[in-house]
Design a protein around this nucleic acid. Structure first.
Length: 442
RNA sequence: CGGGGUAUAGCGCAGCCUGGUAGCGCAUCUGGUUUGGGACCAGAGGGUCGCAAGUUCGAAUCUUGCUGCCCCGACCA
């Protein structure tokens, strides 16, 4: 992409409403635009990152056996009356009336609708287990939206729903999502720690929040230091096998959010192993048994020919929130530092002197070759000063910057800079091409 | 939902107290000089002063009501 043809509205000054660093940087880097409290337009650069995150989520969901579909944002109130939540949900649910005076709502979540889909088609235990998910915009009319996309009213969420014959198989479904989440966040370069969460009326030990440690987190969290270094399940993990050992490994060390915190158990740890920090919740997995299948009549026939309500679980990832969490975890004074897996572009190629034959020729050639090698390149071909170009590149945080200027090209050299370390190295265009392709394609 | 704050050009702000035709920096446009870490000079364009009512000869400024947005707390992917 040529920067001269792109839409990248960079702000030099920080809008005053932005308090936390991720919100500031997203606004300054031209990723989002606030349209109303807690409601944002996603500008091209922000949308690109959002899509990369979605892609990773989709790949890991598929690996774990979840099937993607898409449900609407607008739902009928009748479904929610069946489950009893129409009245129970409260003011967070945005209620809408259509032209026929029918009660509708903008979905804050989709348990009712997925249960309706399930009961409409599935009749037999032979069709289980089943895990259906979608990535769709949700609306929760938060009293106080804040922190940019970290607590918006409209937000993009991945929500998966599992259906199983009994509690034991539901546990396997739960474990599959547990492992998928470990891998998903790891692939984004995030350390997400599963922490015991409140299970509500169901009880048991089948609810975990996945928490990123960051100073600007909304809640206080406590965990055993060993969790920070624990190995992530491999790509080749067999999701059909018993995943209990992995889940046990990850749930045995102490880890809890504020509301589940057990100070006695925590202080039993060696002092050096105690981590207490702020956390951002980016995922939440939950087993809720037959709550909705009972209320809505989602039953299947067993091998004995009897009918039983299915056991369900739900598994959420805050996709849009993850952008905020990623920036909170990866930035410096100059701007964002994107992990390679979610960067909007892999390389920022800076032509320091557009109009100069040498820099133009070398830049255009390298631009074409990098793209041909499958890399996404933001090519700064604009006629602005060097300082402004560098500042922009640092702000938007692409993993590698390549600078083509007259000074280096006298000797046939470009400068290649790694954004995360700040390390700069002079090399020929061929060497730069090799270095970047090997660093960014794996 | 309780408490606090704020609203003036795309962004950041001054002006308001003490009413008299709206200003600064950045950004934008034109011309020139510049050119390796957010250049300089000269000129130009751009504002229903959040909305409504009131007071007044006259309201950004005073009064009342409404609305938006932000912050702190209690709740949530």
């Amino acid at each position: 992409m040529r920067l001269s043809r792109y839409f990248l509205p960079i702000l030099k000054e920080t809008p005053k409403e932005a308090e936390i660093v991720s919100h500031r940087l997203m606004l300054r880097a031209g990723m989002i635009r606030q349209q109303s409290a807690g409601i944002y337009s996603w500008l091209p650069l922000g949308l690109k990152v959002l899509r990369k995150i979605e892609r990773i989520v989709e790949e890991e969901q598929a690996r774990a056996g979840a099937i993607q579909l898409l449900m609407p944002t607008i739902q009928s109130a009748d479904l929610w009356r069946e489950s009893g939540r129409y009245d129970a949900y409260g003011k967070e649910m945005l209620r809408i009336t259509d032209r026929h005076e029918r009660d509708m709502l903008f979905g804050p979540t989709n348990e009712e609708m997925i249960t309706d889909i399930f009961r409409g088609y599935v009749r037999s235990y032979k069709d289980l287990p089943l895990n259906l998910y979608h990535i769709q915009w949700k609306f929760r009319d938060e009293v106080r939206p804040r922190f940019g996309v970290m607590r918006g009213r409209e937000f993009l969420m991945k929500d998966a729903y599992s259906f199983d014959l009994d509690k034991e198989s539901a546990r396997h479904a739960y474990n599959r999502m547990f492992v998928a989440y470990l891998r998903t966040f790891d692939r984004m370069g995030l350390k997400a720690i599963p922490m015991k969460a409140d299970t509500g009326p169901i009880g048991g030990d089948m609810s975990h929040e996945f928490i990123i440690l960051a100073d600007t987190g909304e809640s206080e969290v406590y965990c055993d230091k060993s969790l920070l270094e624990m190995a992530i399940p491999e790509e080749g993990t067999d999701f059909l096998s018993d995943l209990t050992p992995i889940v046990t490994q990850w749930t045995t060390p102490y880890a809890a959010t504020d509301e589940m915190h057990d100070a006695v158990a925590f202080e039993a740890l060696d002092e050096a192993d105690r981590v207490s920090a702020r956390g951002i919740e980016v995922g939440h997995i939950f087993y809720f048994g037959t709550k909705y299948s009972d209320a809505m009549g989602a039953k299947v026939a067993t091998s004995e020919g009897t009918e039983v309500p299915v056991h369900m679980g739900s598994y959420g990832v805050g996709v849009s929130r993850l952008l905020g969490a990623l920036i909170e975890a990866n930035h410096d004074d100059n701007g964002i530092i994107w992990p390679k897996s979610v960067a909007p572009f892999h390389v920022g190629l800076v032509n320091l002197k557009p109009g100069d034959d040498l820099t133009d020729t070398v830049s255009e050639d390298l631009y074409a070759k990098l793209e041909a090698a499958g890399l996404e390149v933001l090519y700064d071909d604009t006629d602005t000063r060097a300082g402004a170009k560098f500042a922009t590149m640092d702000l938007i945080g692409l993993p590698y910057h390549v600078v083509a200027g007259p000074r280096g090209l006298k000797d046939g050299l470009l400068e290649v800079k790694e954004r995360s370390t700040g390390e700069k190295e002079m090399m020929t265009p061929e060497a730069a091409l090799n270095k970047l392709t090997s660093a960014l394609t794996d």
